[in-house]
Design a protein around this nucleic acid. Structure first.
Lengths: 250, 250
DNA sequence: ACCTGAACACCGTTCAAGT
DNA sequence: ACCTGAACACCGTTCAAGT
């Protein structure tokens, strides 16, 4: 969790090196330029660099100093364009959220709702910043409004009363967020083929008298990928939603 | 998010002050003792102090230095008892998880399942460390095993096949974790009585042509407390689970 | 207007030294 | 065995100064 002593090369070597800095080592000292030219930075460039850092080395690797390094600039320069790190994070999140769209066509409102949630889940997994910020979002960005509108447009034809609809959407969102939150630490489910065998074995090793139900389950343990679990739960949720609708719709 | 410059008094004034330290200020300099006596620290004492810090000032306030301060000890002393901060966090979480128990009686397995989930939700809200660590838990602590056993003992009488049961439990857990994760940033739902009026007003202010469904919802917007939303979703989930059971049970 | 050096107030942790 | 001082390698950010 706090392994910060990992070797980390400065990932971009600047093209020109016109400065004669103190070179204590032999040849290939990176030796950054004295001062970055005036147009080097822009909000967009910063957001893009931040996105790259997150994609490459994860959210924890995103520090002001690292970002400045990648941009060939000094840390403090970033503060000309963003008031603080949080603002950068928000900008990144907003930009990533704007990539959200579902192009497939659906055969029914419930079907469509499922597609939307799958896309939302995938988005949160691909862009963990969104997960961290989804909690903190107060205002409603255009992308968020579009998303919300789409969801409720699925519920409307089902004749679900608004209060119920709001409750159901909240339920779906919590499920998706929970699944995405838990995702990174369940990677063994997808990568280790023996994972479930081991889990079942561990359950079976518990004292039978105290853990009879777990023993019963261990005897017929499934092997789910994370995608499987998500899909399974999502379907159950969608069925629950369909059940809330009057007899008229699907 | 990064407001660390908050004033923070050292929260415990040591009883005796036998040292004649450099006192630049006038009288009441705290002036800690030269060296804490040998029995001052123990894993339990550290865990308890950590629990207090979290309860009082939140998880972010928990630092090694703060903890040492509260214990009347130097930061490095903690490392005699725990290998790193993460180990302290794990110990705290495990101790808090061991407080988990549900005493009420239930009228049915589904009912019982609901109680378990409510208690789990409450536990995660009361002890945010658990939320952070629930992701990272690899091994199975006794408390966790007890919890898992209880859940599956509710599903067994419903004649749900083990693979389905595992999927349903995963769904429930993700829902609860999602709800708890989102909880701290939805405090306005509970504290601000006008919150929902404002949300509805914001939705109604969107252009009608682009957001027809949100407009429809805004016209009859409910006012949920967080507890309400959780309860609503939980009931829907429990119904979905009941629906998975063969006609025999409840 | 934009980029920056130095410094501040924090982190977790290593290492060698005290008792 | 347990407690600690000094130091290291990091953080985000302020403030005043350069260009």
């Amino acid at each position: 969790m706090y392994a910060k002593l990992v070797a980390r090369e400065s990932s971009r070597i600047l093209g020109s090196d016109e400065s004669g800095r103190a070179m204590s080592s032999t040849r290939s000292t990176p030796a950054r330029r004295r001062r970055a030219p005036r147009g080097t930075l822009s909000p967009d460039a910063i957001v893009q660099a931040a996105t790259e850092v997150i994609a490459t080395d994860g959210l924890d690797a995103l520090t002001i100093r690292r970002l400045a390094d990648d941009l060939g600039v000094r840390p403090m320069s970033l503060y000309t364009h963003f008031r603080d790190k949080d603002a950068i994070l928000r900008a990144v999140a907003e930009q990533q959220l704007s990539h959200y769209q579902v192009t497939e066509s659906a055969s029914s409102p419930i079907d469509r709702l499922g597609q939307l949630m799958r896309a939302y889940y995938q988005l949160l997994i691909d862009h963990p910043v969104l997960l961290r910020l989804d909690a903190a979002f107060e205002g409603m960005t255009p992308a968020q409004a579009r998303f919300t509108e789409e969801i409720h447009s699925c519920l409307r034809p089902l004749d679900i009363p608004p209060p119920t609809a709001v409750g159901l959407v909240a339920m779906l969102v919590r499920y998706v967020i929970g699944a995405a939150y838990v995702y990174p630490t369940r990677s063994a489910w997808d990568t280790d083929p023996d994972h479930w065998t081991h889990v079942a074995a561990r359950w079976a090793a518990l004292p039978l008298d105290d853990y009879p139900s777990m023993h019963a389950v261990a005897a017929d343990y499934p092997s789910f990928s994370q995608q499987d679990v998500f899909e399974f739960g999502l379907r159950a949720l969608l069925e629950a939603i369909a059940a809330k609708a009057p007899r008229s719709a699907r």
